[in-house]
């Protein structure tokens, strides 16, 4: 039977946990959600599966491969991304080995001393993990697990234990939640605090941080700064958080809502549990006989 649903109801972390515990083999495919006019059982708009966003393969409960629609995931791309091949080397290899399968290409590259086997395994592992960590932050999207479907034999599969992936994924989700709650609205602006010169003295910023700092202006929203620097929402939130914690920028916050956060609803003053019913065993046996006879 298919394992399918929507990530908003059953998160990527929960799916990975299930695959790990059940030792499943197959491919998890995540799709773009296409809104329908129907609602699901809990009143949310039902999302149909649209274009494919990502697919992740598992063998006997271990993660073995991942790819997204925006990244082809072939070996040259993976090694280039891991800085094991320069852009120029990647371009040349792509031209010369256009129709060579990953496994054959890996042998060629090792024999030509471009990379070692360890480089290849490590790069594929990191590439796969990067994709999966990204998927873990997706809060919505139809998914389907195709039992026993695995990538073609030309692909290099590097088995990765899911336990650590799940723990790291959970940590990242917590971090994202913290960042989101710290800066829930990206339409806020940034400004420098009084005496910025003093505060920036002796501070070592990364290239990305400097790029954000260069756009600090009360007229630029954080969202605009992210777009200008080609950064994701999480990346910009992380950088703004760091800069703000260091006292280098200030976020102009909206007014706190007057009514404040809603209190969680639930039972108030729950009654003590009722005493356990004393039913004789003969009664239960009679019930069993009666139901059997129906």
């Amino acid at each position: 039977m298919p394992l399918q649903g929507n990530l908003r109801d059953f998160s990527t972390t929960q799916i990975l946990n299930l695959i790990n515990l059940a030792g499943k083999t197959g491919t998890l495919v995540i799709f773009e959600g296409v809104r329908t006019n129907e609602k699901d059982a809990i009143g949310n708009i039902r999302m149909a599966a649209g274009d494919e966003r990502a697919r992740v393969a598992f063998k006997a409960g271990k993660l073995v491969q991942a790819q997204t629609q925006t990244q082809d995931g072939n070996l040259v791309t993976v090694l280039n991304k891991a800085s094991k091949l320069t852009d120029e080397q990647a371009r040349i290899i792509r031209e010369r080995a256009k129709n060579t399968a990953d496994k054959a290409l890996a042998l060629l590259l090792i024999n030509a001393n471009y990379v070692s086997q360890k480089d290849i395994v490590g790069s594929i592992q990191q590439y796969t993990l990067d994709i999966v960590y990204t998927l873990l932050t997706w809060g919505e999207g139809p998914f389907r697990f195709e039992d026993n479907l695995l990538p073609g034999p030309d692909r290099i599969l590097v088995p990765i234990d899911l336990e650590n992936v799940i723990i790291e994924g959970a940590r990242r989700i917590r971090e994202i939640e913290q960042l989101n709650s710290h800066l829930p609205n990206l339409d806020m602006a940034l400004r420098f605090p009084p005496n910025p010169r003093e505060k920036f003295k002796g501070i070592h910023l990364s290239v990305e941080e400097w790029r954000v700092v260069s756009y600090v202006n009360p007229r630029n929203t954080v969202r605009q700064i992210a777009r200008a620097n080609n950064m994701s929402d999480i990346e910009i939130r992380r950088i703004v958080y760091g800069l703000e914690q260091a006292g280098l920028v200030e976020v102009v916050r909206p007014a706190v809502p007057v009514d404040g956060p809603r209190q969680p609803t639930g039972n108030t003053g729950r009654l003590p549990p009722p005493p356990k019913t004393q039913v004789q065993e003969t009664v239960v046996r009679k019930l069993i006989d009666r139901i059997r006879s129906l």
């Binding site: 929507n6 908003r8 109801d9 059953f10 699901d40 059982a41 809990i42 549990p273 009722p274 356990k276």
Partner: peptide, 22 residues
């Protein structure tokens, strides 16, 4: 067939479990 209700099902299960040790 409705994974969107699983969370609620689990919550109901735990609620009833707390009512009585049956």
């Amino acid at each position: 067939t409705k994974p969107e209700t699983f969370r609620e099902a689990k919550s109901i299960l735990e609620t009833f479990r707390a009512y009585a040790p049956t």
